[in-house]
Write a protein that binds this DNA or RNA. Structure first.
Lengths: 124, 124
DNA sequence: TTTAGATATGCGGTTATCCGAATATGAAAA
DNA sequence: TTTTCATATTCGGATAACCGCATATCTAAA
């Protein structure tokens, strides 16, 4: 065994934390794992918008948009500011968009790879 | 109306595609939205590993690991190579890890923000 | 061909996610 | 205060995600 007692203790104390952190990590990722929320986040990347603007942009029922926004809000990925009777939503962190862009690029590459594979095997 | 007929046609043809692309985008994001798969991907970031190595690293039932690996494989996020009776899994795209790191950084910032907020309001 | 080790899958049950429809809340205007 | 517009929430049902357990498949060695 190569771990000191101190290190073992530290690890055993960190393990549950590490697990919890991974759950939080996954919780944030879940927030970007839905087509509607992806669309919402890209809408907000341009500038803050209020709910009706988002409803019009996405052409989805207001309740649906509102529920998805709530989920993003609960995770602190967007924040809100009231102006008159409108509630404006703002993207809290640009890196969320960066992560989405990365995954989108990965997706494009996978699609292209599959397409050229289909060409070769004659599946087109 | 400012769109030419050609542009309108292009858009109407692209719309369903755009929706489909967003679904694929979300499908890839779903793959990183689970604590177990996050752990798997970080394990594979170091170097390719076979299933038993992953089972030992994560201390989870082999069936569980295998099923999560299947999901990543079906989405082309990892690929496999057989060596004797072992199947080695390799991370297909480093950007998947980059995206995970971004989301992890966002998560840390959110946690810290909440912690310092708790200090101020005396919730610690 | 039989055995053993490594990996994958099928089945059943539990929990989580998502949505539509209706309704509640909250601010502003009448 | 009543009405109106914007936004949030609740309820119920459908679907999907996840897991444990058992078992199937595949490879290599005996």
């Amino acid at each position: 065994m190569r771990l000191s007692e101190y290190e073992k203790l530290r690890i055993s104390m960190d393990k549950p934390q590490a697990q919890e952190l991974r759950i939080m990590h996954a919780t944030l990722c879940k927030a970007i794992a839905d087509p509607t929320r992806i669309a919402l986040l890209y809408e907000l990347s341009e500038n803050p918008k209020h709910v009706n603007q988002l409803v019009e942009a996405l052409k989805l029922p207001q309740a649906t948009v509102s529920r998805h926004l709530k989920m993003l809000r609960e995770r602190s990925m967007v924040y809100t500011r009231r102006e008159g009777s409108y509630v404006f939503y703002t993207l809290a962190d640009q890196r969320i968009l960066d992560a989405l862009d990365l995954m989108r690029a990965v997706k494009s590459d996978i699609l292209n790879r599959h397409r050229s594979l289909a060409e070769v095997t004659g599946d087109l």
